[in-house]
């Protein structure tokens, strides 16, 4: 008799244990493991060399653009990209060490040089993991296969809205990111890039990444960009126009840096905001009218009491409106409702 309750208790414990085990198997891992894998995946190319072909697709609301490029990477920071598509970029080669870039254009017999470390340090900025983890949960998905390799997925879900913003698949062994998908806040896909084939490891000759000007080609300076500062007081002092800033921002966003440029008589202040993963720029300028769209057809957008316009340009939402003395333009991966709220909050 005394043994019966004991056997019931054991059976109950066993059932609970089985249930917990099942739960562990079914639920994606949301723990330090996922965060550690996230960091490992983003840092993998600092120590792993590879060669492969990558296809990228950027989706607008009613169209899509794609590039196909052959990538050779020698860890930690040497890159060589050779474009196969689109047709206009066929044959273009980029050699970069992440701060200096040489762009070879055989059709023009020119080599464009961009010194990102001097003109746009944002190119070489490393990811702020703390900001990402502050605003996003990292969820580890089940095993699958990408480009013939065993991979697992990591999903980044906004803690504020619950929206899936990005998902990527990394090679289980090397941790290299093999495939990535980004989503708009409304759930629609924004971009997708994936290795069609990849060879990890091996030795790549240093000559592949040598930045030199071949005979018959001319070295010319590439496009210039504003040098950013994270000190807004400096920006107020150095810029030639009185600019404003939004009093409120979407959840998790904050001002990251700002810059001032003067281009063909148009003075422009650019303020960059981010939440660790998503970013947007607020441009304010005088002496010019609202932006000129080359391909997209803008639609009207209400910004507080004003009416502006917006369109998708190269996978980013661009919205613009003007007041009596300034033109405001927001560029970034934001929904129109978010843009309207930011615009209405500008004081």
């Amino acid at each position: 008799m005394p043994s019966r309750p004991k056997s019931h208790f054991s059976a109950l414990l066993g059932a609970l244990g089985l249930f917990a085990l099942l739960l562990l198997c079914v639920t994606p891992v949301r723990s330090d493991d996922a965060r550690a894998l996230f960091r490992a995946a983003l840092e993998a190319d600092d120590s792993v060399s590879y060669s492969g072909t990558i296809t990228s697709v950027i989706y607008d609301r009613d169209s899509a653009d794609a590039t196909v490029a052959r990538i050779d990477h020698k860890a930690p920071n040497s890159w060589r990209l050779w474009y196969v598509a689109p047709a206009g970029a066929y044959g273009r080669m980029i050699v970069s060490n992440e701060s200096l870039t040489y762009q070879y254009e055989p059709k023009q017999s020119r080599v464009y040089k961009n010194d990102w470390s001097a003109t746009a340090p944002g190119v070489a900025l490393s990811l702020d993991y703390g900001r990402v983890e502050e605003n996003y949960t990292v969820e580890l998905g089940p095993k699958t296969s990408v480009a013939g390799l065993t991979a697992r997925s990591l999903s980044l879900v906004s803690k504020h809205t619950g929206s899936l913003i990005q998902r990527f698949w990394f090679d289980v062994r090397s941790k290299l990111i093999l495939r990535r998908e980004s989503y708009h806040p409304d759930g629609s896909i924004a971009s997708k890039s994936s290795f069609d084939n990849i060879r990890i490891g091996g030795t790549l000759p240093a000559e592949l990444f040598k930045m030199s000007v071949p005979r018959g080609m001319t070295l010319v300076a590439g496009a210039e960009y504003g040098k950013p500062t994270s000190n807004v007081a400096d920006l107020h002092a150095s810029s030639k126009l009185e600019f404003a800033a939004p009093a409120t921002l979407p959840y998790g966003f904050r001002l990251e840096n700002g810059s001032f440029t003067s281009h063909d008589g148009v003075d422009t202040v650019q303020l960059v905001y981010g939440d660790g993963l998503r970013t947007f720029s607020l441009f304010e300028y005088t002496n010019a009218s609202m932006p000129r769209f080359s391909r997209a057809k803008p639609k009207p957008l209400r910004i507080g009491e004003l009416t502006g316009e917006y369109a998708d340009v190269d996978g980013e939402t661009l919205a613009s409106w003007n007041t009596s003395h300034l033109v405001f333009t927001i560029v970034g991966d934001l929904g129109t409702k978010e843009i309207s709220n930011i615009g209405a909050a500008i004081k």
Binding site: Q166, P228, V331
Partner: peptide, 13 residues
């Protein structure tokens, strides 16, 4: 403007 945004946020994931 899109390129200006892109170049300042290239470090973004």
């Amino acid at each position: 403007l899109v390129r200006q945004h892109l170049v300042q946020t290239m470090g973004s994931q």
